[in-house]
Simulated scan of single mutants.
Amino acid sequence: MKRVVVNERPNWQADAENCGFTIHSINDERYWDERHAYVFTLDEIETRLEDPSATLLQMCYSAVDRIVADAGLMSRMAIPPEFHGAVFRSWRNRERDLYGRFDLAYGGDGPAKLLEFNADTPTSLFESAVFQWRWLEDMKARGEISRTADQFNSIHERLIDALRFLPGPSRRMHFAGILGSEEDLVTLNYLVDCAAQAGCEAMLLGMADIGVDAKHWLTDLQDQRVDCLFKLYPLEDMVREPFARHLPATPTRVVEPLWKLALSNKGLLPVLWDMFPHHENLLPAYFDDDPRAEALGETYVRKPLLSREGANVTLVNHQADGGNYRVDGPYGAEGYIRQALRLLPRFGDDWTVIGSWIIAGQPAGIGIREDDTPITRDTSRFVPHYILD
């Protein structure tokens, strides 16, 4: 793995706008950044990223087995007690999920380490699946990189294949989210397009516009039953919505399913460490009130159970600045975990994290984010990659 300087395409902003990637810049700062790229060997991709991602996923499934069978553990992970039975049934029935993303610390100098699993509503999907592939093909055509270059990226194809099986006999899907959020809308519009390519009738729906009928079906603005709902909205928030009490009984297929409450939670990390201690792809992790957490000493990362985009994460005595580094946010009341500190690899002045995408239970590609701080946030820059042997 190395970072190389490459020439920006003169028309990249127009290309982004033309394909619907309107969040290529955030607050007049680059979000998409093609001034450099990351280069991997094929063996590195397969043995250091793809294979470990498949292994981590199987470990996560084993963790779900344990979590859903333990009401005390679910409560410790801030899963509402009234949903414990529904989460158990959702997992027992093997309700289909669509996608997730492992965040990995990897710099080419040892095993990839799991930082967290974004198992519900992970961002940067379109740029990972589509726009970095467009960049690769364009750069090869321009002669900027070798025509033999490839990319670890089957995300788009796997999404379409997965969406063929989600909606059921009606072939109708609603895609819900906060439609006023440009970032969410880019992802939702992309998934609607994927669903259409999969032969589905797909439509957008605002979260505030979801209704419920007398038989617990979720409904849309036309009072039509929603057969299958993909929601780009956190499950931990959804179970607190006014219609939440209908979720355990609804015939509507909801994606992501309720069992993802066990994975989209930093409490997963201490469960994994307890089940698979000293695994080369894991970091030691404990619930904040676990006496064993003291073994981490004064150098660790403290994360809220339900934090997103780095919010309320604290690096304690991290090696970069010789003190604490913290990102503000609204989380923390639900509890914390502590994880052994593994600083992200640094290339130049940038801290780099690899997002390893899981589509319908299979590793499907990577997306790379950079930040000038050691905590990845929603404004962290997206940088493309390619494979060259």
Score class of each variant (00 low, 15 high):
residue 121 T to V: 14
residue 271 V to Y: 00
residue 87 V to G: 01
residue 183 E to A: 14
residue 137 E to S: 14
residue 14 A to W: 08
residue 299 T to H: 08
residue 284 P to T: 03
residue 159 L to D: 00
residue 13 Q to D: 08
residue 165 F to A: 11
residue 236 E to Y: 10
residue 293 A to I: 03
residue 374 P to T: 12
residue 361 G to Y: 04
residue 280 E to V: 06
residue 76 R to N: 08
residue 217 W to V: 09
residue 207 M to I: 15
residue 232 L to V: 02
residue 86 A to T: 01
residue 66 R to Q: 14
residue 279 H to I: 03
residue 75 S to Q: 14
residue 78 A to S: 15
residue 98 L to F: 11
residue 85 G to L: 01
residue 32 W to S: 10
residue 14 A to G: 06
residue 348 G to S: 08
residue 88 F to G: 01
residue 35 R to A: 12
residue 24 H to E: 04
residue 141 A to C: 09
residue 207 M to F: 06
residue 11 N to G: 05
residue 209 D to L: 01
residue 43 D to Q: 10
residue 272 L to K: 02
residue 362 Q to T: 09
residue 68 V to R: 02
residue 128 S to G: 13
residue 167 P to V: 00
residue 307 S to N: 09
residue 84 H to D: 11
residue 120 D to V: 08
residue 47 T to D: 13
residue 168 G to Y: 06
residue 291 P to Y: 11
residue 53 S to G: 14
residue 210 I to S: 00
residue 283 L to H: 04
residue 271 V to L: 14
residue 146 S to N: 12
residue 172 R to Y: 06
residue 378 D to P: 01
residue 76 R to M: 14
residue 88 F to Q: 12
residue 149 A to T: 08
residue 341 L to W: 09
residue 182 E to K: 13
residue 156 H to S: 14
residue 218 L to P: 00
residue 30 R to Q: 12
residue 157 E to K: 10
residue 237 D to S: 09
residue 271 V to M: 04
residue 320 A to Q: 15
residue 42 L to G: 15
residue 282 L to Q: 08
residue 344 L to I: 14
residue 210 I to H: 01
residue 88 F to A: 11
residue 128 S to V: 01
residue 58 Q to R: 15
residue 298 E to H: 12
residue 149 A to G: 07
residue 300 Y to T: 04
residue 233 Y to E: 11
residue 183 E to K: 10
residue 275 M to R: 03
residue 290 D to R: 09
residue 243 F to V: 13
residue 151 Q to R: 09
residue 64 V to Q: 02
residue 145 I to Q: 06
residue 239 V to A: 09
residue 380 S to V: 10
residue 24 H to D: 08
residue 115 L to F: 12
residue 350 D to C: 13
residue 283 L to K: 07
residue 229 L to R: 01
residue 20 G to S: 10
residue 209 D to E: 15
residue 102 F to V: 13
residue 346 R to V: 15
residue 136 L to W: 10
residue 15 D to N: 11
residue 168 G to I: 07
residue 193 D to Y: 07
residue 156 H to Q: 10
residue 263 L to Y: 02
residue 105 A to L: 08
residue 12 W to I: 13
residue 291 P to N: 04
residue 311 A to H: 06
residue 357 W to Y: 12
residue 220 D to Q: 05
residue 292 R to F: 01
residue 127 E to T: 15
residue 253 R to V: 09
residue 270 P to A: 07
residue 305 L to H: 06
residue 177 G to V: 00
residue 248 P to S: 10
residue 241 E to H: 08
residue 218 L to T: 00
residue 85 G to M: 02
residue 99 Y to P: 02
residue 285 A to D: 02
residue 340 A to Q: 15
residue 92 R to S: 13
residue 264 S to W: 00
residue 144 E to P: 00
residue 32 W to T: 07
residue 315 L to K: 05
residue 161 D to C: 03
residue 267 G to M: 07
residue 94 R to H: 11
residue 27 N to D: 15
residue 239 V to P: 13
residue 190 Y to V: 02
residue 370 E to Y: 08
residue 177 G to I: 01
